[in-house]
Amino acid sequence: MNPSLEQLTEQFTGLVGANGPAGTPIVAGLAEAGPGSATAATPVGAAVAAPAAATGALAPAAPPPLSPVQTVNHALKGYDFDATVAPDQVAAAAGILDASGFSLDTVTGVDWIAQDQMEVVYDYFHPTAPLRAVVRTRIPRANPELPTILHVFPGANWHERETHDFFGIRFLGHPNLKPFLLPEDADFHPLRKDYQP
């Protein structure tokens, strides 16, 4: 039952392809999925592959693209495994981790306003093995949509609702994206960097 890092790397490499999502065009959302409709997407390959290193205006000077699937030193980062996938692959990624016995830690967002992108981060922990996995994806800021992983991890319900509250990221297929922690009539998303209170 307990997976190893090698197995995970292998499975995720199979999922994202050899070049990772950097090689495939980022689709604007599941509703218009497919390579043909990727016109709205900006070429953000480098930023996607090295999300942590992309820092505002410094983005062009970022180090060379890292592999989308990598193992990380837990003592330095707090997790063991880091995978960057395309937005429409998050459910498949959740499926892989679910089959390996992972549990959903949290779902959250990061607003990379300088690159006009939103990052969605899925944290996983393993209840029986000492493993922590992070799956991340990037979506355009103008149209922040990606599929829900509710059918894989029902616990994502509240996390996705919260992320929708804070960032306005729409999880397609989520049945109930009403304001959750915010007031019932809230139409703002406070953790967006351009939010003016």
Binding site: A52, A53, L76, K77, G78, V110, V121, D123, R132, V134
Partner: peptide, 8 residues
């Protein structure tokens, strides 16, 4: 330094 870090 830039980047993300977790601590549980």
């Amino acid at each position: 330094p830039p980047g993300d870090t977790c601590y549980a």
